[in-house]
Nucleic acid binder design. Structure first.
Lengths: 184, 184
DNA sequence: GTCTATATTAAGATAGAC
DNA sequence: GTCTATCTTAATATAGAC
């Protein structure tokens, strides 16, 4: 079994159950691979499985979110595309964020630096678009933080209420919030 | 050992590590009580320990947040007090939200209804203040959702970045965001 | 109410055959 | 690369003494 089919399964497990909530036995059941096979692919065990999952998720993020933010076109269009991709990534708020699940438990101490770097990269990418559009860099930075806060908060609320509505509404408002008074 | 001293320890453990990340052995170490003693207090095991922790947290929430929101005084003052209590509860963004940690893993399936009820109660309390202040109820509901989204998102971002700054900034802005154009 | 001791099941991980 | 079988440790949980 190639890693390209393995990693989406790992991604799904880790984001849904968190690092502490996933056992190698569960992974074995979900992938229909024996434990020994899993350890063949990932000699470092569960930690390496999450590391590989983070790389996989990072790659998706670069190819879908960061690439869109760095593309040509108006800021408004780029943010709109970003929202569409985010909605896809999180299944309109039904699926949790992998990075957010890693902020608690054992993962927090072990993978904290990776999470921090990922968030900072996302923040910088959003702020860069806003700076390009003419916003002062301090304000651009603040608004980028507000965007990620809105995204993460909407994911928690939607999942907690078991309703996509808050996430969908937040994604619909996000672009205009980001672009507000840009050319004012 | 009385439960009044036990529950704050449980609360701290569960919010930091999530349900799956806490073992009875860890609880035993943290409380300096033998496992058998813990099962004496909570015959239902770890699940009952979390149930009791949720009740404890609910009580704190009623006495501190809901009470303040239901008090006399201007909406602006009540929200300001709410923000102060929230900042205390989450140690300015250093501590995770218990309810948020329960949206993943095993806890999600078992405790989802409790989490949902708690969020709905919080939403209703905020929306009620806004309605009293003259906001149409649909808008009041939306703004209440935005407040919880801001709170939860700020907690994730602050913890992910290992910085209180986003949480502190968000709490500082929250009251005016909630009261915007109330008497316009 | 708390303890020691223990039963039972599941977890993380490896050896070695195919 | 995948399997069966196995090891070791940790998990949940209980029995019974004090």
């Amino acid at each position: 079994m190639p890693k390209e089919t393995l990693l989406p399964i790992l991604f799904h497990l880790f984001r849904q159950h968190g690092y502490d909530g996933v056992s190698v036995s569960k992974i074995s059941a979900a992938t229909k691979l024996g434990k020994a096979s899993l350890y063949h692919h990932f000699p470092g065990g569960k930690a390496e499985m999450l590391t590989a999952t983070l790389s996989y998720s990072q790659q998706w993020f670069e190819e879908n979110i960061l690439q869109v933010l760095a593309s040509e076109g108006a800021a408004l269009d780029r943010f709109q595309q970003m929202c569409d991709r985010l909605s896809e990534l999180y299944s309109a708020g039904e699926q949790p964020c992998l990075l957010a699940t890693l902020t608690v438990g054992q993962a927090h101490s072990v993978f904290h630096e990776s999470v921090k770097r990922r968030l900072e990269g996302f923040l910088a990418a959003i702020a860069h678009v806003l700076s390009e559009a003419g916003l002062p860099s301090a304000l651009a930075q603040q608004r980028a933080e507000d965007a990620i806060i809105a995204l993460q908060g909407a994911l928690i609320l939607s999942r907690g209420l078991d309703s996509s509505a808050p996430f969908i509404r937040e994604m619909a408002q996000l672009t205009e919030k980001l672009c507000e008074k840009i050319s004012g």
